[in-house]
Every structure is written in structure tokens, then in C-alpha cells.
Simulated assay, not measured.
Amino acid sequence: MAESAACPAFQLGRPRYDQSSFLGRLRHFIDIIDPSTLFVSEKGLKECIKLLDDYKDGKLPPGVSDLQLWEAQKIKQAIIHPDTGEKIFMPFRMSGYVPFGTPIWLNQSHNACVNYANRNATKPTPTSKFLQGYVGAVTSAVSIAVGLNVLIQKANKLSPATRMIIQRFVPFPAVACANICNVGLMRHNELSEGIDVLDNNGNVVGSSKTAAKHAIMETAFTRVVLPMPIFVLPPIIMSYLERLRFLQSNRRLLLPIHSVVCLVTFGLSLPVAISLFPQMSQIEVSRLEPEIAMATDCKVVTYNKGL
């Protein structure tokens, strides 16, 4: 009885938590980014997929609980791309975003690969366009970050105190702009090709460039929100920790502790940021291309925003 109260009845292909609320999306994405899914073996993944297929075909073995089915679906959603049905390379899954994206020298390259791997993939992307997007994304991101810092350092007319204050705030707009460019360039193919939109029955009713624009804008906004806590919380936390007598007498521990605080903050901010919008977003047909409005009687259609 306690399990049924805590665990709703399983519904294949439906989220376990209510996606119309921020809290429901947060709980859903905490599942999706669970680092333990990085260590699921090929055998374990196949067992999860078979369990879900058995449920779909009405051949579920006796004794399988709703909780086991939800866990199997969680693992599949964390590893398999919803559009292509193919495995996402482990470092580029959303569950690998924090552990593989933390090293600063890998950050923007890793961001580019994550943005590509978790895009809307209803239309194929040629390798040449991927490479163009990757080079453009990483180059623009690094150029923005370095350029803003150089600009501040060369601002000789500013007093040292003013320059120092500005330098403390420069990293956030630099990272935010870099992340926007990264998302836009890695997913620019969606803008030219459009993405599939689905009716209430999950049938494709057309390909929309307008929906693609909304998908990319929503994803880019999450990448702006993502670094906010990372620039705010660690300095506040460290200001308290540095007062501890233990750390005052062991200054060499400050750097590793600061790294751990940043890592934990990064891990907490990721599900919050990507929970701002549901992955399967909706848009009114009246806002889309005329040919889509003519192809369906639905007032609202659904599309995969990507992550």
C-alpha cells in the first residue's frame, strides 16, 4: 500500500511526474541526470528495454512492480535518444554533463557535443554541418570569454577597484553569451530544416521552422540560467568555510574544497535549469506555418525541445 502511494501506476512513454509543474519537471530531470545511469551495462540496458517491450506486448512476467517499470523507463530515457532510438555516447548524455563538463579546458567542447547529442533529431544532420557548428561554437565561446576579460584588463581609465568589481561580474555574461552561441551553432540545422511536430495521437503532422526556433530559444535560455548559481553560491559558501579554524591552519585544502563546492553547485543547478521547460513542449498551431494548420484539426501540437 505504501509503495502504491509513493509510486503511481506505470504508463509506458509517460513521465512519472507531472510535467505541467516545475517541481514535477525537476523530479523528472533529477532522474534523467542521475550519474548512476552512466554505469548501466549493455546487458542491463537490454533488460530494461525488454521489460518495457514485454509490458507493451502484454507479456509482462508476474511479480514485476510499477517501481521496476519506472526504473527501467528512467534508464532507457537517460541513455536512448527519443528521436533516433540510438544510444547517446556516455560522456554526452545529460547524466554526464556535470562529471565530464566540469574541467574548464573541456567545458565548451563538451557543451557543444552535449548540445548536439541531445538536440531534436527528427531531421538528419550531415557530418559537415556538425563540424561547422562545432568549430563555430567552440571558437565563438572561447573568443567571447577571452575577449571580455582582455577588454576589462585594458580599460586603463577605470580605477583598480572598479576594474576588479567588473572583472568579478564579467565571467557570467561571458559564459552566458558563449552558451547561447554554442546552442545556436550546434543546432542551427534545425532552423533551416525544421523539426517534426506531433498531434494528440503522436503522429507527425509536419516539419516546422517556427517550432525549431522556439526549441532552440528555450534551450538557450536554460543555458543562461545554468551558470547563475555557480557564480553566486561558491563565493558565499567559501566565505564561511574559510573562517573555520581547521581550514585556516590547512590552507592547502582550500583549492580542493572550493572545487568540490563548485562541482556540487553545478550538479544542483543543472536539473533546476533544464526543468524550466518541459522536454516535450507544446505550441499553438495558429503560430506555426499555414501548411501545418491545414494538416491537422488540433489546436496545439507537441515537439521535442531537446535538452
Rank of each mutant, 00 (worst) to 15 (best):
Gly306Thr: 08
Asp53Gly: 12
Asp34Gln: 05
Cys113Ala: 12
Gly58Cys: 13
Ile236Phe: 05
Met90His: 02
Ile104Pro: 01
Ala137Trp: 13
Leu255Trp: 12
Thr219Pro: 03
Cys181Met: 14
Arg287Glu: 11
Gly101Asn: 05
Val98Phe: 10
Val138Arg: 02
Asn107Ala: 14
Val135His: 02
Leu233Pro: 05
Leu247Thr: 09
Ile166Pro: 04
Tyr97Cys: 04
Lys213Val: 07
Ser21Gly: 05
Met280Ala: 11
Asn156Met: 02
Thr102Cys: 13
Pro126Ala: 02
Thr210Pro: 08
Ile144Tyr: 11
Leu52Glu: 04
Val204Phe: 06
Phe266Val: 13
Ile230Met: 14
Thr222Leu: 02
Cys7Asp: 08
Val197Met: 06
Ser281Val: 10
Asn118Trp: 04
Ile195Thr: 03
Leu226Pro: 09
Asn304Trp: 08
Arg119Val: 01
Ser192Ala: 05
His81Arg: 03
Asp83Met: 06
Thr222Gln: 02
Ile49Gln: 15
Ile104Glu: 14
Leu60Ala: 11
Leu26His: 11
His28Ile: 09
Lys87Arg: 13
Ile216Gln: 05
Gln132Pro: 03
Pro173Trp: 03
Lys129Ile: 12
Gln11Trp: 07
Gly206Lys: 06
Pro91Gly: 05
Ile237Phe: 11
Cys181Ser: 14
Asn115Tyr: 09
Glu42Trp: 10
Cys262Asn: 15
Tyr303Asn: 08
Gly13Asn: 14
Trp70Gln: 04
